[in-house]
Every structure is written in C-alpha cells, then in structure tokens.
C-alpha cells in the first residue's frame, strides 16, 4: 500500500490488513496502521448570530440565520441558504443543520456528553434531522447545548456538550460552543452583547476520525 491511496480507502483497508497479519502469525510485528487524514480543526471567535437593536434599545431577533461552512471554515451568505454550501446555521440560541426542514443537504446532529478530545470517532448512526416538531439540536435551557438563567438572563454553553454533526455533504464533524457572548468574556453580564458564537470544531473530509 502506498500513501497515495485515498485516505477513505486506507481506512477501510487497514483493519483488514491487520486481521490478516494476526491470522498468519500472532508473534509477527503488527503492521503499522496507515495514518488517517487528520480532521481539520479550527476555532471560530464571536461569529455573530445577533440581531439588530431597535430604536428603543430592544434587541431584535436576527432576520436571517448566520450560515457557516465547516468544510471551508467560513461564513456563507444567507442568499445561499438553499444550497449545500453551508453546514450549520445560527440565529439567537438556535443552531440548525443543513438537512430536513432546514436545508437541502444531508445534515444531521446529535448532542453528546463528552470531552471534545474524547470524541475521537464520529458516530455513524443516531443523527437527528431538523424537523417541524423540533430541531436536531434541541432548543431550550438544559435541553441542548446551553442553559438559561432566569435570574441573570445569561446563556451559558454547558461544558461537555459536544455536537456531533453530519454535514451538508454527508461528512462528519464535531463542534463545541464555548461562549455566546461577544469576545467570550470570562464573566459576561446581562449587558454584554449576546448572540456571538465562539466555538471550536473538527471536520473530517474523509472517514469518521475526528482526531
């Protein structure tokens, strides 16, 4: 085997090679596992999903979702909403994925209770899809990725909630929201501009490894 093979193929073949080795001779040195393509990881800071502020100072919910492509690592214009260019969309505390009622893609999501680093392999099943009855990433305090404190009116991303994603084009990714406030302050207050997502993600263009 050569490294010029496509990584996806490599992944599929590697275990077979390993098994074959074992069958022949248990004592034989284990064939090196072919390296998989490392996932593309990045951190996005203060991506705005906030609306405007009305003349009287009241926050107004954003008209459009803020679309983002995990594959390209950049924001996508809302005019491309009916395409598979974007993978996730943000508006207020709602996060949508490109699939089901939200878009034409194959997008799905599930929320795991794990450390970001511990989600080494993307699950291949159990993805929920955005539907009229509810989003793949549940909304509401304590239901999905955040809690809302009715006293302080603060939104806090719950530590250890990792969103496993199937992207618009059927690839796998994981995403962790780290802050909902502009510039991710350590102690936001009720007056800190909200609706600004700071998150990190890992995107795997081929296979399920999210390392």
């Amino acid at each position: 085997m050569k490294n010029t093979f496509r990584p996806a193929l490599l992944l599929a073949v590697a275990p077979l090679a390993l098994a074959a080795c074992k069958k022949d001779d248990d004592a034989a040195p284990v064939a090196p596992v072919a390296p998989t393509t490392p996932a593309q990881t990045a951190t996005v800071t203060s991506l705005s999903a906030a609306g405007t502020t009305s003349a009287t100072g009241q926050p107004v919910t954003a008209k459009h979702y803020t679309f983002f492509s995990l594959a390209d690592g950049k924001q996508i214009a809302y005019t491309d909403s009916n395409s598979t260019k974007w993978d996730v969309g943000f508006r207020g505390t709602t996060i949508i994925v490109n699939g089901g009622t939200s878009g034409p893609g194959q997008g799905g999501a599930q929320v795991l209770a794990k450390l970001f680093a511990d989600v080494a392999t993307a699950p291949t099943t159990d993805y929920a899809v955005d539907a009229a009855t509810g989003f793949a990433i549940p909304t509401g305090s304590g239901k999905g990725w955040y809690t809302y404190d009715a006293t302080t009116h603060l939104i806090s991303p719950i530590a250890g909630k990792i969103i496993a994603l199937r992207t618009a084009t059927g690839k796998y990714a994981k995403l962790e929201v780290q802050s909902y406030y502009k510039d991710a302050p350590a102690t936001p207050s009720a007056t800190t501009p909200s609706g600004y997502y700071t998150f990190r993600y890992a995107y795997q263009p081929s296979g399920t490894s999210l390392k």
């Binding site: 209770a113 450390l115 530590a159 250890g160 962790e176 780290q178 991710a184 700071t198």
Partner: peptide, 20 residues
C-alpha cells in the same frame, strides 16, 4: 449519578478548555 457516569464537565471561563 451523572458524575459517576463521567458525564459532567466544566469549562474554564478564560481558556474555554473543558475537563471532566
């Protein structure tokens, strides 16, 4: 129960790193 199952984490508000 969630702690015993290893399902509770915390995030350092400054570094934004998460740990169990």
């Amino acid at each position: 129960k969630a702690l015993a199952a290893g399902q509770v984490f915390r995030r350092n508000p400054v570094s934004l790193e998460t740990e169990r």
